[in-house]
Amino acid sequence: MNVLIVEDDPMVEFIHRNYLERINRFENVYSANYVESAIELLKDKSVDLILLDIHLKENNGLDMLRIIRHELIKVEVILITAANETSCVQSSFQLGALDYLIKPFTFDRFEKSINRFFEKSEKLLEETLNQKMIDYLTGESSCQEGLTKQSKVLEKGLSKETLHLITSVIVKLEQPFRVHEVVQLTGLSHVSVRKYLYYLESIKHLEVKSIYTKIGRPYKCYYYLLPGD
């Protein structure tokens, strides 16, 4: 497996490389500072995964992602960026991004994203896929389908666009997840996220559990439930 880092900040590229060396699962690690050079590299090298920044000096990472999809280049993409605007997150997932990490990020979160890439790659090596595997690979679409069937009319104060954004994020999170993870990836307020999570819980798409610790108050964790669970 080969990975390409598209990042114009040398320090961030160094962090990516350091984390990848710690994980030690890729044969080759390539790098590019610009979209144009990254596209040229994709023509010459076999690349399985791209770690892509959005705000590059001479171009936009989302433009590169659009080019990749338009030219049907078979490669997975993880966005790693300081861009936390809702529009960027939504566009990334609509363009088929595997994951979205907001800088600064921890090694644990980075490793989870890389592990998700390898899990998906291994599943796609199978000659056939059962429904559970397909649900894993197309979690966003199955989530949206279930929501459409159960609730054609949203409660007052909720929008379909925001609900789609939140659900597209939570199906890609490692389960269970907490409110602040959704806030970080969507750019929405805690109040807004809680409102939508409460709605998803009310239509049986989320299960919530209170976690008690020896010190401090209990906190809530959420589990996404596939339609029909």
Rank of each mutant, 00 (worst) to 15 (best):
S142Y: 13
Y222V: 08
N33W: 01
A38L: 07
K209P: 00
D135K: 12
I134K: 14
K112C: 04
I211P: 00
F107L: 13
Y100K: 09
A38E: 03
I134M: 12
A97H: 05
V179H: 01
I80M: 12
E27S: 14
Y219V: 04
Y222K: 09
K123L: 15
L225Q: 15
P218R: 08
C88F: 15
K112T: 06
V29E: 02
E207C: 01
C143E: 02
V35R: 02
T106K: 13
F107W: 07
N84R: 14
F177V: 08
I78W: 07
D8Y: 07
N2F: 11
V169R: 01
G61T: 04
T106E: 13
N115R: 12
I73K: 14
F14T: 10
K214N: 14
R22S: 10
K172S: 11
Y34K: 15
L125F: 02
I67S: 08
R17N: 13
V77T: 13
I39L: 15
F26A: 06
L4P: 01
P227I: 08
H16V: 04
R25F: 02
N24C: 04
L72Q: 14
D8C: 07
P176A: 08
H70L: 12
N84A: 12
E71W: 04
V153S: 11
S87A: 11
K57T: 06
H55Q: 11
E127W: 04
I54V: 13
L158V: 05
I68H: 05
V183H: 05
L197K: 03
T186N: 10
V179K: 12
S121Q: 15
G228R: 11
N84P: 00
I23E: 06
G187T: 08
E36A: 15
L158P: 02
K195A: 07
Q175I: 11
T106H: 10
S37F: 01
V179Y: 02
L65E: 01
I67P: 00
N18F: 06
S31H: 12
K57G: 03
I78F: 10
K195T: 09
L65D: 01
F118M: 10
L173D: 03
A32T: 04
S92H: 02
R66V: 11
D99I: 05
M11Y: 08
Q94H: 11
T138N: 14
S46N: 15
V3K: 07
I114L: 10
V6K: 02
T162Y: 07
D99W: 03
Q175M: 13
K74V: 08
E40K: 15
V77S: 01
K160V: 13
V153D: 08
R17Y: 03
R194I: 13
E7T: 02
Q131P: 00
